[in-house]
Amino acid sequence: KRPMNAFMVWAKDERRKILQAFPDMHNSNISKILGSRWKAMTNLEKQPYYEEQARLSKQHLEKYPDYK
């Protein structure tokens, strides 16, 4: 399994927040909201998630050095 990218790292927690506020919302609508919010964020706001992506990628490479 591939490591999560920056968007997926961010969306994991954001999806939970949306589901808590709107428990009956369909997944497709949640995904649209998440995509819009991510696009509206600045690079500075996204930076911590890119850093986490890099950490996860490094960890994955160490754990699975032959992964293609």
Rank of each mutant, 00 (worst) to 15 (best):
P65N: 08
D66T: 08
K58W: 05
M8A: 12
K17R: 07
E52S: 03
Q47I: 08
D13R: 03
I18N: 01
M8W: 07
P48V: 07
D66Y: 11
G35R: 14
M25K: 00
H26Y: 02
W10T: 01
S31K: 12
Q53H: 15
M8L: 07
Q53S: 15
N5P: 05
I33S: 02
S57R: 11
S36C: 11
F22G: 05
P65V: 10
R15T: 09
Y49F: 09
S31Y: 03
D24R: 07
K58N: 10
Y50L: 07
F22T: 13
L56I: 06
S57L: 11
A11L: 04
F22H: 15
I30M: 05
E52N: 04
R37F: 05
N43I: 11
K39F: 02
P23K: 05
K39Q: 10
Y67W: 12
L44I: 09
K46N: 02
R15E: 10
A21D: 15
I33W: 07
A54T: 05
K46P: 00
E14P: 00
K12T: 14
M8K: 12
R15A: 07
I30C: 04
Y49R: 03
E51R: 07
H26G: 13
P65G: 12
K12V: 11
K32E: 10
L61T: 13
Y64A: 14
Q53P: 04
P48Q: 08
P23M: 00
S57Q: 09
R37N: 08
A11F: 05
K58D: 13
M8H: 14
P48K: 05
A54Q: 13
Y67K: 14
Q47P: 01
D13A: 01
K39A: 11
A54K: 11
G35V: 14
R55V: 07
Q59M: 09
R16N: 12
D13K: 08
K1V: 06
I33F: 03
Q53L: 14
K63C: 13
Y64L: 13
Y67D: 14
K39R: 11
R37H: 01
L61D: 15
D66H: 03
A11Y: 04
N5F: 01
Y64I: 14
L56C: 04
R15Q: 06
K58T: 12
R55I: 06
N5T: 13
L56S: 07
Q47C: 02
W10Q: 01
S28Y: 05
K68M: 15
R55N: 07
F7L: 02
R15D: 00
E45D: 06
M25E: 08
R55Q: 08
N29D: 14
A21I: 04
P3L: 03
R2M: 07
K32L: 07
N5S: 13
D13Y: 15
R2C: 10
Q59L: 09
R2H: 12
K1D: 01
M4V: 10
A11G: 02
R16K: 12
R16S: 13
